[in-house]
Nucleic acid binder design. Structure first.
Length: 138
DNA sequence: AACCATTGGCGTCATTCACG
DNA sequence: CGTGAATGACGCCAATGGTT
């Protein structure tokens, strides 16, 4: 079972998204009549529905020795399992990556507002000094 | 209320990069 | 050089706010 609780984002949205995917998937199954292991668990993404998995999962090499798998059935099961693990890892990596990016942007925005205040103060000070100078020199 | 544009978050794929 | 992690790009969806 690959369904995991997501760590980021609003939980109420997460669950609704999941429900929506399940609905889409149910519709997909109704049309195709296809049924896989992930179908049984409901572990399916919207993208997978719109973009059926290629015949060869990403990153799975053709060069696997024929002896490593006893039969084609086992080979495809192993390939499917590897693909699911890879997708799960990449899903989590993407979430973490986005979280860091949001944090980075927040930091930049904070720094911007600090610098804006600083700049304003310096401009005011500059004006003040200019005024003093002009009064003295006149 | 219906419609539309914008925004934010997600999953996936493709690519890059660092490491063993 | 193969492999896994990180990330940009893309498309999708839901929520939200503005407009008619």
């Amino acid at each position: 079972m690959l369904l995991i609780a997501t760590s980021y984002g609003a939980p109420h949205i997460e669950s609704r998204v999941r429900e929506h995917r399940l609905e889409l998937y149910a519709r997909h199954m109704a049309v195709t009549g296809d049924e896989t292991e992930s179908a049984a668990t409901g572990d399916i993404s919207a993208y997978q529905i719109h973009n059926p998995a290629p015949s060869l999962p990403q990153g799975v090499m053709m060069s696997g020795s024929p002896n490593s798998m006893h039969c084609p059935q086992q080979h495809t099961e192993e390939a499917t399992r590897k693909r699911e693990v890879r997708l799960l890892k990449n899903r989590d990596a993407a979430k973490e990556c986005r979280r860091r990016k949001r944090e980075y942007v927040r930091c930049l925005e904070n720094r911007l507002s600090v610098l804006e205040v600083q700049n304003k103060k310096l401009l005011e000070e500059l004006q003040y000094l200019k005024d003093i100078y002009s009064v003295k020199s006149s």
